[in-house]
Design a protein around this nucleic acid. Structure first.
Lengths: 344, 344
DNA sequence: CTGAAAGCGCTAACAG
DNA sequence: CTGTTAGCGCTTTCAG
């Protein structure tokens, strides 16, 4: 049995070998060559470190260097499959680079987000990956002012010069609506959430533009982000009933799509004949649903990849250059039966 | 404009008020009364702290106290809706108590998990919430030995005396299988994942027991956890084809259920008439599917609640008592059309 | 009631 | 090449 006693420190291993902590520190930080430390000594140190399973105390390291190698990941709702999937990819890539991830859900709440940002600052996270709700512009600016690496995603603030990773929300929606029009749908409604966030505005604009080009009139249902599941379903049901000329629905988010399918089922409407359906953001539910549901699919893995590489870049370029680089990724329209009358 | 200059420390605010840091520290830590510090002084300090928006450096605090107020949350896969939902509830409750959460996915990989545990230790997380893969028993024991708060969930190690939050896997499955039998299904197959984890073994046992009681023969398909989505679908398709007497399927996890539905769709089988289906763990997909799919639902919110309260308890009882308290929560069989022939 | 001072464990400038 | 040492910012004992 090895005795592991109390926590062992860099001092202990220096003492053990009768050398200075500096030497040990240099070796441990891969600066042995640079400091011309003998290979022999280097090996001796590394051997002992293995033997006693010494791990530097990250807290002390962080206090000293100011770097925590922790990233803050703030999303609307971690249980939303879109964000949960991003989380998975982000994690994979971050861990590979030695970063850990602190997550939290903003619930699109300004105050909560501000508090969260403040907490992350206290914790000295090295970088911020954020889906910002409206109203936190100043807080983001403050981060920027303090030269902290930030990258927004899903939505962004056009008026702030900050890196962001988003998708072609307008174009994606525009194409989807056009596809509905081409399928012969005459009265296409847009179900969205009350929000001034950029991605929701863009989707709305894509809808409006497509209609305008075909001289059709918009027909919009807005629910509240914080409405309960059942409330949303009921609002959609009601909407379908009261505007009975509607023959197609576009849902602006995945959870609206899920609620919408429930509403359609309750109303006993048949897709794609009685009602055409497309939703933004793909999801298991939509592929498996009978009939399968057309979706505007976002490149989740690529979004995650861009987020991480962007933040790591900022972390690397030790406070050197400015690089608010915004990336706009394309969406793919996954045509399925809910919107295509000719599909088997 | 307030000047915020460089990071402000407890020293600065002490100096500013011409008092000692000790006093400030006491006040900030709510020990003013205890230390008989004048209300007047207390207010003065609090006022200044507000004014300059001073936030103690958590890193220094942690280094000093050894507490980080960070919890480590290790799950099989954060993008699995079951775990993502738990994450959401865990987060909510942890943040309320001032704890942040570091998450990671183990992918059921022993080595990866060991590394992850070791990383969390380096980071000095205050508590560990873990869904352990097989083979990490010793690592869990090591945590215990070092008096670190740990709570397992989803699966557990019967041979180790460690708190855990699990569900009635055997009973839940047993009831589901019985329900299939009562519906008249004669040849019920069990689709699971190759794994010796307790929850999978328990589910299998529930299946076997139900069959035994009715003198029916087991029929089991095991796929690999790391099989690709498409591979799993194909294996299930093949299984259905080769064992064409099968008239009901039980899927032992939510993702197997999702793959299974895809396989059934491809084979063009009709539920519940040609094939009865029940799956473990509920999911949007199962509610919305047409026909809707019967599921053994786990009490997600309650699981999260128990996890947090258990870990917080351990954190409170400052290394006092032993309390490896295991909680076993009931599941609910959500009867839906895929397994009930009489349902409309 | 309050202040001085000793670290927590590590990094890195500086001086051999 | 290596050792000494000064903090990083905070908590807390011990003396007044």
């Amino acid at each position: 049995m090895k005795e592991e006693k109390k926590k062992i420190s860099i001092r202990d291993i220096a003492k053990q070998l009768n050398i200075s902590v500096t030497t040990v520190s240099f070796i441990l930080n891969g600066r042995a060559k640079e400091k011309r430390i003998s290979d022999h000594l280097k090996e001796k140190v590394e051997k002992l470190v293995k033997e006693v399973n010494y791990k530097p105390n990250r807290l002390a390291q962080s206090l000293r260097t100011g770097k925590t190698r922790i990233l803050g990941f703030m999303v609307e709702d971690i249980s939303n499959p879109f964000f949960a999937n991003i989380a998975r990819y982000i994690e994979e890539q971050a861990y590979r680079e030695g970063y850990k991830i602190l997550y939290c859900s903003t619930e699109n709440d300004r105050e909560k987000t501000q508090e969260l940002i403040s907490m992350f600052r206290e914790r000295h996270v090295d970088g911020y990956i954020i889906t910002p709700p409206c109203g936190v512009e100043e807080d983001i600016k403050a981060l920027l002012l303090d030269k902290l690496p930030v990258v927004l995603f899903d939505r962004y603030f056009p008026e702030i010069n900050v890196p962001a990773v988003v998708v072609e929300n307008k174009k994606g929606t525009y194409n989807a609506i056009k596809s509905l029009i081409e399928q012969g749908y005459k009265n296409i409604a847009f179900v969205t959430v009350e929000s001034d966030q950029s991605q929701m505005m863009d989707r709305l604009q894509g809808y409006e533009q497509a209609l305008r080009e075909h001289e059709m009139l918009p027909n919009i249902l807005k629910v509240k982000f914080h409405d309960a599941t059942e409330t949303i379903v009921q609002k959609i049901v009601e909407f379908i009933r009261t505007t009975d000329t509607v023959d197609a629905l576009f849902f602006a988010t995945n959870y609206l799509g899920v609620r919408g399918l429930e509403a359609i089922r309750r109303e006993g409407l048949v897709m794609p004949d009685q009602i055409g359906v497309i939703t933004f953001d793909d999801h298991d539910v939509f592929q498996l649903h009978n009939p399968s549901v057309t979706a505007v699919s976002q490149p989740i893995e690529e979004i995650a990849r861009q987020l991480i590489s962007n933040i790591l870049n900022q972390l690397d370029e030790s406070e050197g250059v400015e690089h608010p680089q915004t990336v706009v990724l394309p969406c793919v329209l996954m045509n399925r039966k809910s919107s295509i009358r000719s599909l088997p």
